[in-house]
Design a protein around this nucleic acid. Structure first.
Length: 191
DNA sequence: CACCAGGCCCTAT
DNA sequence: ATAGGGCATGGT
């Protein structure tokens, strides 16, 4: 999903990068989030420990500018990284936490809503928490899978319709996106 | 130049 | 509870 950043093996640094990307990608294109991540990497700040140790997160404003919302995303990154470092001393500690407990804690953090929380849980931590994003909602609408579009309802719908397996959740969600990108491209070609 | 891109917080009903 | 406005930038 983050082709440039995702390697085969899931190592600690990759899990951190995915979590950082989840925030940077909020309401922005992947391209712009990628530009911001490259800036962070160049500055040597693409890690939870580095981000959490910033004395002033406004230093990030210039680096994050391509991803937009540079007044809020630096604070969101700092909030998340501080939480992970201070409460769990890193992503390894996060992995040990129970899904439901961790999801509730993530939702309590500034700048982390249901979609970002589930993105971190599913893609960064390999925990079976299905993501409801705009792609998923478009699929539900187009295929008329439900009349209700409330987040928790759709989340339950997918989670009870699929085997509760993080790899299956990851691949199914990725396919929803791939399918729509392919559709868009083919429509362009037809036009 | 107008519109879009994997949300979330805050405020007012 | 829930709806609506605001936030910022790079592509097309």
């Amino acid at each position: 999903l983050w082709p440039q950043w995702c390697a085969k093996k899931k190592e600690r640094s990759l899990r951190e990068i995915i979590a950082i990307g989840a925030i940077l990608a909020q309401r922005t294109s992947w391209h712009n989030a990628d530009l911001a991540m490259r800036n962070l990497k160049k500055a040597g700040l693409l890690s939870m420990k580095k981000l959490a140790s910033l004395e002033n997160y406004n230093e990030l404003m210039e680096l994050i500018k391509p991803a937009g919302f540079c007044q809020t995303k630096p604070r969101r990154l700092f909030t998340l990284s501080s939480f992970i470092i201070n409460e769990y001393s890193g992503v390894d500690g996060l992995m040990e936490e129970k899904l439901a407990v961790l999801r509730k804690k993530l939702l309590g953090l500034y700048g982390i809503g249901p979609e970002t929380a589930d993105t971190i849980l599913l893609y960064a931590l390999d925990k079976p928490s299905f993501i409801i994003d705009t792609y998923t909602k478009r699929l539900v609408e187009r295929e008329r899978l439900s009349d209700i579009f409330e987040y928790d309802y759709l989340k339950q719908f997918f989670e009870t319709s699929l085997p509760k397996d993080s790899t299956i959740f990851q691949n199914f969600h990725a396919l929803i996106i791939i399918e729509q990108k392919g559709r868009k491209r083919s429509l362009m070609e037809i036009a």
